[in-house]
Design a protein around this nucleic acid. Sequence first.
RNA 1: GCCGGUGUGGCGAAAUGGCAGACGCACAGGACUUAAAAUCCUGGGGCCUUAAAAAGCCGUGUGGGUUCGAGUCCCACCACCGGCACCA
Length: 891
Amino acid sequence: MSSARRQYPFHLIEPKWQARWDHEQTFRAWNPGEDIPADHPFRKRHPAALPPKYYILDMFPYPSGAGLHVGHPEGYTATDILARYRRALGFNVLHPMGWDAFGLPAEQYAIKTGQHPRKTTEANIATFKRQIKSLGFSYDWSREVDTTDPNYFKWTQWIFLKIYNSWFNPATSKAEPIETLTYPPELRSDEEKRAYRDSKRLAFVSEAPVNWCPELGTVLANEEVIDGKSEVGGYPVIRKPMRQWMLRITAYAERLLNDLDSIDWSHSLKEMQRNWIGRSEGAEVIFRLADSEKSITVFTTRPDTLWGATYMVLSPEHKLVDEITTPEYRAEVEKYRAYAASKSDLERTELAKEKTGVFTGAYAINLANNERIPIWIADYVLISYGTGAIMAVPAHDTRDLEFAEKFSLTVIKVVEPPDGKDWRGFVDDGTSVNSSNPEISLNGLPTPEAKRKITAWLESKGLGKKTINYKLRDWLFSRQRYWGEPFPIVWKNGHHEALPESALPVLPPELQDYKPTASGEPPLARAKEWVNLPDGSTRETNTMPQWAGSCWYYLRFIDAQNPASLCDAKAERYWMGTGGSSATPGIDLYVGGTEHAVLHLLYSRFWHKVLYDLGYVSTPEPFFKLVNQGLILGEDNQKMSKSRGNVIPVDAPVKDFGTDALRLFEMFIGPLEMVKPWSTRGVEGVYRFLGRVWRLFVDEQSETELEQRLTTEQPGPELLDIIRLNPAIQDVTATPVQLKTLHACIRKVTEDLDGLRFNTAISALMVFVNEAMTWETRPRSVMRDFLILLQPFAPHLAEELFSRLYLKSELRLPYIPWPKFDPALLVEDMLVIAVQVNGKLRDTIVVPANPTQEEIEAAALKAEKAQPFLAGKIVKKIIVVPKRLVNIVVA
RNA sequence: GCCGGUGUGGCGAAAUGGCAGACGCACAGGACUUAAAAUCCUGGGGCCUUAAAAAGCCGUGUGGGUUCGAGUCCCACCACCGGCACCA
């Protein structure tokens, strides 16, 4: 926009109302038992008891140095509109915002410049906060949280201690305090008991391979490694075993999966979580070796194909490989194992096209038919899934077939495809064939039945059992970083020990150099005085991953300042909907991007369930309803990115068109969940609409006067006092037509907000304005209700116009009850009905409302333009759709 | 490869199985203006006719089907976007 005339003085209006909301704390949410000031607008609306709660949450941002671009406010605008709508409906709305501020960029910047990450983080938060506040969202800022604030991460560490001091009791399928653990009788010494206890904790230590980036001198999280290279800088990443903290999320796999059925998330999001958890039902089968007493256990989902197992494969890392390899194959096996170990993840995926492997020289016995089958090792079998070994059924598994063809191994058909398809490589359900021995036969059985029968047989012989496997792995929870929560853990004589709660928060030490040490130890290890404690113990030097702080922030919002607990139990029950009312269990609506579809949402659900088991929260799930907003693309239809140069920072449109226009545009371009492109033209369009709203309400002369004063005077909110109401707005009774226009709008906006259809709600507001522009007198009552509808979308303009409408009003627009539409006002006297002949539209007729069937049929048969299509034809049937159309079927 | 989503005018889009294209952008014509901007009014899927219209025909990724009637439901395919990817 260059020289275009300003549509309305948003630059005076928006700061004015933002300052007022701040000063008045208009959007404070109130906890049970809190004193509400007598003059607060919430108190005036709800003088007695607290009304039902509505907890609506945005995924809080990582405050980067670049500031907000126009993609950020999309979800925030949607939730703000709904928060304002719910307030008008009479709910106590919790709508908070905070900062997920630990993270790698601040630390990388510190390594480069020596600037403490706290400084960078504070500056970035200040920028983000200024920008978000300029958008006029109705957040309760008194509840702002910052994950890097010791008063916040004290409780992150506290939750870690709870996890550390718990175990998962398989009998109850719940986390319980570690004290309830019972020890097997053979464990006598304290040392043995400690080892057992430590092996059962929900937080445990394990030697695990990590992503080590030599170039950056640091370890990276999986999500920071893209195609085998570091996300930052694109340097190669290798696997390196290190001592790591893990969280036992796998214990919760079944509950994380099942409880998806109890929450209102999109189908695709639930599917992503289900796939990630990857439950798969099958059987473990024990194979005896041909020439020794040893045995190999495999996991298979197709025990019914046992007769087709013509060879076995161990993963190269399998611990039996050494024991079974025969001397003449040892050299080759060793060579292959070294080769497999040297492959990076990148190479593993790249080379996946071509199967590799070597024979060990050993044989196993296929227990179904007593055949000797060769045992191979190959890297297409993963050590980390199932038992790290498989029975290969090349006839009915694509990977096994590929391998068998390459190495000329036997292929035996054991499943008959249902419809004459080729059996080779057929992997779906069919009918078992060639599957019998003197004790059992599967022949003729459909696959599901064959699975049941063979599993029962294996179980009866002690050679197998029904098993469930998950793709989900335990959560690697430690990072070799500075800018994260330190663990509340010390090491003494080679054992880890929890610090007492009284030692929290554990603050990170001050450092000059944020790089890891030369030996690859985490940066915290540089702080010798911090690490070494007087009693000879040493502190854990890893820190927690960025996910830790975001796992539970929604709970802190409930009671953000509480020094005594992570949040007050009574407040938690109220806001999470278990206070005895019929409120939604958990957060009513959570809105954020799909990039968190798996990790954040899975980790968060996991922590919540642990806290639930231990009695600290009252619902099994944190987020009842969840919606993913779609990406906003650049004007070139490409994903916004610095490298493409198509990033639009929020400040530009806010300055040119105002934040109301920005908000309105982001909601108007399309459905919330869809991907949609930015368009500056489009913002101008809704900006013009807001200009029309302004002119609908204000006196033209007074506006001209304001414009003139603006050219000579310093702009300030007091200039708005020049503005007078449009003389067309009068205290008159609304006409039936005006009421119909208003109530059609109320109905559409209300229904669309309930269905999160912001774009069509806005078009309904436009339709109203287009109509109202033509009215010579505009009844004050009608215009008032329109402003209540407009307020959630364009709150600043709505507030300003409302204050013109009621100059002396004590009422505050955000708390005025939402209007109800009256269906009686929408009833039409006459209806326009479409007339079809054989399903094609030929004419329309006007009939009185509620006509009889006969009247409609008669009128339709007389419809002028339909006559040529009826002439000389026999009417076979007439279909009447009430209030819509008539279809005359002729032969 | 598997899972999920999306295909409708020049563009963003709308449509409980019932008048396809609401609303907006861009565009064109007109009013106002010395002129422009802004504003207000009007028009608008394509084809075919025509001075202009009316009428007619075609039209929601492709091909089938169900139905009095399909953008919407069913079957088979194509394209694009997102996720997972040797998970036995």
